[in-house]
């Protein structure tokens, strides 16, 4: 394989990114930052797919295509989420999740 970076490095990077995303999703208080954490999770998935495809199954392109679709769907998700966030800003005049809590147990 070309560059000589072992596949494990990519997988470690992806795992760290995934759990950083999960941590961010659970601890951040700003809606935009939460959305960024979700994107981090999806990007870690992309790295996983690309590394597996390039190193283990280079004769087939399934992983590459999957990550293209993940990128496209993530863009749709971000578009809808940001539209709703704008509406939340208009209604609540804040995008801090601690203030957006009309409903509770």
């Amino acid at each position: 394989m070309s560059a000589g970076i072992p596949v494990q490095y990519f997988l470690i990077l992806a795992t760290v990114m995934f759990f950083a995303g999960v941590y961010g999703f659970l601890t951040r208080r700003n809606l935009i930052t939460i959305l960024m954490s979700v994107e981090l999770i999806l990007n870690s998935v992309n790295i996983n797919f690309l590394a597996f495809n390039r190193y283990l199954y280079p004769h087939k392109m399934e992983g590459m295509f999957f990550s293209i679709f993940v990128i496209a769907v993530a863009a749709c998700e971000a578009a809808v989420a940001i539209a709703i966030i704008i509406n939340i800003y208009r209604r609540f005049t804040t995008i801090n999740v601690e203030d957006v809590n009309e409903m509770k147990f």
Binding site: F25, L31, I34, L35, V38, I41, E77, V80, A81, I84, I85, N87, I88, R91, F92, V100, N101, E102, M103
Partner: peptide, 18 residues
């Protein structure tokens, strides 16, 4: 125009994306 509806929307999209 309803606060609760916007809140439901963001909760649904973020948890489903996650």
């Amino acid at each position: 125009m309803k606060n609760k509806s916007a809140e439901a929307g963001i909760k649904l999209i973020l948890s489903s994306a996650f």
